[in-house]
Design a protein around this nucleic acid. Structure first.
Length: 397
DNA sequence: ATTAAGCCTTGGCA
DNA sequence: ATGCCAAGGCTTA
């Protein structure tokens, strides 16, 4: 299939504190963006998008497939504006969160420009069904397999075929579950096949969209009549009825796919953050049940306000192992590695024993300067930092 | 109503 | 080498 209409680079003015794509595109929100030749690339709404960023602008390039014909008016700028919610002033949100929350104030400077992506609701639903008991690397592999085997071909980047995400209707065949199992989806194969069938066949066409926050319209928006408007809680409850969708996955779909900014997905990381930095769950039953799930979300909503989910993702990102290593140089001498361990201890808090490593002035400087590098070579330099308690919800193996 | 075990797979680590 | 644990949980008993 020939691909035509290679566009030119265009740009939008946006600062790195308002949007940092190196962080936002790989912090576990969307699993389809890939960095190829120093450009972030993803098929989105029928076109191939490539992104680069400097301190003042987001640069973008669009490639349309030959079929179907590209639309007359290219709406890519509007798409990006919507996808990144660029009309939202992230700087003042960070200020507000910092004023009410010392912990946020401490962590946020290293992780500026982290935004919630306005993803397609179906993409969020499928992606986060895959996310259960799983890690970002494998989730990404699974979502890419889903695209490669069931989604439309959009373009080639070098030898690599880039497919868009399949719709629910593309996943209703009788062999889908077995095939997904062969592809390594494990027990999630059934959930995806069932959910696709329900969304495509049992629910009305606009069901997913009807769960959207009316104040956060979708990109391809036919506005829903007011009588069909749902609340965040109603949207969350309806999603819970789907197979493979529990409270956490439902919140991910609400936050990233349906525009509910107050939604706070509480996963094992966020639960650890809540315990470590907000002293939650220290008394009473230590078990992490539904009541505790709701309590954590409610606490953060009270603290951070209507965009609590956005604030949550900043701290979540700061806690990801990959990002805890932010700001470290690639060259990995032994000394560098040790410095890195020191920084990780710094970022993840005082609860664990500190390594017996001297703090260097150098490391302090680096920590402050820690803007995320994309190609960190050194991985897993520190030993397992997970505590026993955190494995509660995780009986796998 | 609440709790614990089982689930697919990959990769790091002892 | 072999086994165990952890990875952005959900379902079932």
């Amino acid at each position: 299939m020939a691909i035509k209409r290679l566009g030119d680079w265009r740009k939008l003015p946006v600062s790195l504190t308002e949007l940092c794509i190196d962080t936002t595109l790989r912090c576990g929100q969307s699993f389809r963006w890939r960095k190829i030749n120093d450009e972030w690339t993803c098929a989105l709404r029928g076109r191939l998008l490539s992104l680069k960023q400097d301190s003042t602008h987001l640069h973008y390039k669009v490639t349309w497939p030959e079929v179907p014909p590209a639309p007359e008016a290219d709406d890519t700028e509007e798409l990006l504006h919507h996808y990144f919610s660029l009309s939202l002033d992230l700087g003042s949100l960070y200020e507000q969160w910092s004023q009410v929350d010392p912990n946020f104030r401490k962590r946020a400077p290293t992780f500026s420009g982290v935004r919630i992506l306005s993803q397609d609701a179906w993409e969020a639903l499928v992606s986060f069904i895959c996310s259960s008991n799983n890690n970002i690397s494998r989730i990404s592999q699974m979502v890419h397999k889903l695209c490669r085997h069931y989604g439309p071909l959009i373009a080639y980047v070098g030898d690599e075929a880039i497919h868009d995400l399949p719709g629910p209707g593309d996943l209703v065949g009788p062999e889908v579950e077995a095939h997904l199992r062969e592809l390594g989806f494990g027990y999630r194969a059934k959930y995806i096949a069932q959910t696709a069938r329900i969304v495509a066949k049992e629910k009305p066409n606009s069901w997913l969209e009807s769960l959207r926050n009316p104040q956060s319209p979708s990109f391809a928006s036919e506005k829903l009549p007011e009588s069909q408007h749902k609340t965040y809680r109603e949207a969350h409850d309806e999603l819970l009825a789907l197979a493979g969708v529990g409270p956490k996955v439902a919140d991910c779909v609400c936050l990233m796919g349906l525009g509910w900014g107050e939604s706070v997905p509480v996963d094992t990381h966020v639960w650890q953050i809540a315990q470590r930095d907000y002293k939650m769950g220290k008394t009473k039953s230590k078990t992490f049940n539904k009541a505790m799930y709701d309590a954590v979300g409610d606490h953060f909503r009270e603290l951070w306000g209507p965009y609590a989910g956005w604030a949550h993702s900043v701290l979540f990102t700061a806690d990801l192992r990959e990002f805890a290593e932010a700001g470290i140089k690639k060259e990995g001498s032994v000394k560098e590695v040790k410095v890195k361990e020191e920084i990780i201890e710094e970022v993840t808090g005082p609860r664990r024993k500190r390594k017996t490593v001297e703090t260097t002035i150098e490391s302090q400087v680096k920590l402050e300067d820690a803007k995320v590098e994309t190609d960190l070579e050194i991985r897993r330099t520190s030993k397992r930092r997970q505590t026993r308690a955190s494995s509660r919800t995780n009986k796998g193996g």
